[in-house]
Design a protein around this nucleic acid. Structure first.
Lengths: 156, 156
DNA sequence: GTGAATTATTTCAAGCTTAAAGTTTCATAT
DNA sequence: ATATGAAACTTTAAGCTTGAAATAATTCAC
C-alpha cells in the first residue's frame, strides 16, 4: 500500500491500483489528523470514538458481536476497548435474562454526554479537513464508494 | 468513525461527514481483505508490504526518517518493522560514511525478488476488489482525491 | 573551539489489532 | 435427559502503532 509516486505506474489495470493508493493515503491522512485532535482535545482515541459512535445510535445497546461486525474489527479487539470504556465509566455491560452468554453494551449517561460533545467537534473537523471537496463532489464520491461497497457487502 | 447508517445524518455539512464515513469503510474493507490474503498466501503483513513497496521504488535505499514520512507513520514504528524485515533477510541497513546518525535501508536481493512476486499478486487483488469501479470512474475518483490531498500536502 | 540547538534514530509504555484457542451457554437431535 | 454442535464472548501471543523520552551525531553561533 501507499506505493510510490516516482515511477508512475502505467498499463492496464493501473488506474485501479492508483485509485487504491490515493484512497488509502487520503484516509490515513485524515485518520492521523483526527487521532491527534481526539488525543489533544479530549484525551481519547479513535477506536474508543468509533465504539461510542456506534453505541450512540442505539440507546438500548448492542451485543458485542454486533459491535464487532459493525466496526469491521475482530471480537477480541472490541472486548479490550469496551473494557477500557467501562473502566472509565462511559459504557456499561448489562447481562441479559434470556441468554447468559451475551451482554448488552450501552453508553452510560456520562458516556452519552461525553460523546455528544466530541461528535460535534468531530463533525466540524471533517468539514474543515474535507473543506476543499465541494458538496457536489462529496455526494458524487459517496455514490461511487457506496456502489463499490455494495459489491462487497455480505461476502464471506 | 464508521458511524451509522440508521439515523441517516442530514443537514448542512453532512455530505462531507457521510463521504468520510464511506471513505473509511471502503479502505478498511479493502485493507482487511488484503491483510488476510497477504497472511494466507505469503505469510506476511500489510506494514511489511508497505515498507517493502516503498523501498522497491528506490534501489539505493532510503533513510529511516524518509521512510516514516513517506508511509505516514511514526519513526518508532518503522524501526520495529524494519528490524523484523532485517531479521528475515529481506532488508539491510547500511551505515553511511557522511553522517553516522543515519543508515540507508534497502531491499536485499532476496527481498527484491520476494516483493516482486507479492506485488504482482497484490495488483491482481486490487483489480479484483475494485473490479466494479470502471476505469473511467477510477480516474475521476483519483483526481478528486488528489486535489483533496494537495490541500494537505506539507501542512505541519 | 565550546556549548547550545538541531537532527536522526532507537527505546519505552500504553494501547490497538488480529487469529487462534479456550470458556461458557444455548439449541437440537436423539 | 444427554450428547453434540453451534454461538457469544474472552483470553492469549505476536505484532503494529503512537507519543514521549533517551542517545548519539551534527551543525551553528559565538
Amino acid at each position: 500500500m501507499v506505493a510510490g509516486p516516482l515511477p508512475a505506474p502505467s498499463g492496464p489495470g493501473k488506474d485501479r491500483l492508483r485509485l487504491w493508493i490515493r484512497l488509502l493515503r487520503a484516509s490515513r491522512t485524515i485518520e492521523a489528523e483526527l487521532r491527534e485532535r481526539l488525543k489533544k482535545d479530549f484525551n481519547t482515541t479513535l477506536p474508543r470514538f468509533d465504539v461510542m459512535a456506534a453505541l450512540y445510535r442505539v440507546p438500548e445497546g448492542m451485543l458485542m458481536s454486533d459491535l464487532s461486525r459493525f466496526l469491521l474489527v475482530s471480537n477480541g479487539n472490541v472486548t479490550g476497548i469496551v473494557d477500557r470504556l467501562v473502566s472509565e465509566g462511559l459504557v456499561a455491560r448489562a447481562r441479559r435474562n434470556g441468554d447468559r452468554r451475551t451482554s448488552m453494551v450501552r453508553l452510560t449517561e456520562e458516556g452519552t454526554q461525553a460523546f455528544a460533545t466530541i461528535a460535534a467537534a468531530h463533525e466540524g473537523w471533517i468539514g474543515e479537513l474535507l473543506g476543499k471537496v465541494s458538496e457536489d463532489d462529496a455526494r458524487r464520491l459517496t455514490g461511487m464508494l457506496t456502489s463499490f461497497r455494495s459489491n462487497w457487502e455480505g461476502r464471506e
